[in-house]
Amino acid sequence: MLILLFINLLPLGVMLSVSLKGEGSVLRSLADLIPKQITFAHYAEVLSSGRFARYFLNSTIVAIAVVAGNLIFAPMAAYALLRSDSKVTRIFLVLVIATMMVPKHIMMIPLFTMLYRMHLIDTYFALVLPFLVDAFNVFFVYQYLKTIPHEIEEAAFMDGASLANAFFRVVYPVLKPALAVVATNTFLINWNSFLLPFVLTSSDKVRTLPVGLAIFSQGEHSTDWSLLMAGSILAAVPTIVIWIRSQKIAQSMLASR
């Protein structure tokens, strides 16, 4: 187990090492992995720059909005898919799965054109609205719901509860482990996404972290490795925090069951 973990973390060690290297330290061999002189200058460069603070804020706003949307809308759709078994909803399920299968890059041009016509380019809306209900999350919660006996909300309906009431009071709490995954996963994908946010933004006002990092660390032919790695590591911190939090929520929920 521990050996596996070591192998698993080695490439990250390389990243960390590169991000901490002082000037003039080229990686030549394995031994160079341990930096002779450690500098936090690259981290300072990212953290002290007002621009990066702004990118961080933008990424946070967008990610929170997208995660919130998915936490509410995806389980609703998944629940409806599972419980209303009709021809129409079976088509819906096929559509959900089909959406996941369409290569995203081909949709960029029509998406860009549409958002441009809506005057949403370079606004948070362009980065949030198209991603509010990810088919991937609908499908995951749908699969997860299958493992949960559907008697749990029957009692609520017998007591005359409305659908929204039964769903959010009774079903939603049981979904917590899945919701933790939805939150982590959505955050992760959104937080690291580069191409669409790059295309859909044009100013520092809404530009997100990966886009900012690319602009500042990558020249036409050369890369500022240290800056890029320091930035990437800093960018990974919030995701790790979110993941640990969501795991705790899921576990405490299990303990109380």
Binding site: I72, M76, A80, F92, V96, L132
Partner: peptide, 9 residues
């Protein structure tokens, strides 16, 4: 319940 997804889709 389908509505948000349907609109987005």
């Amino acid at each position: 319940f389908f509505l948000p997804w349907l609109v987005s889709f």
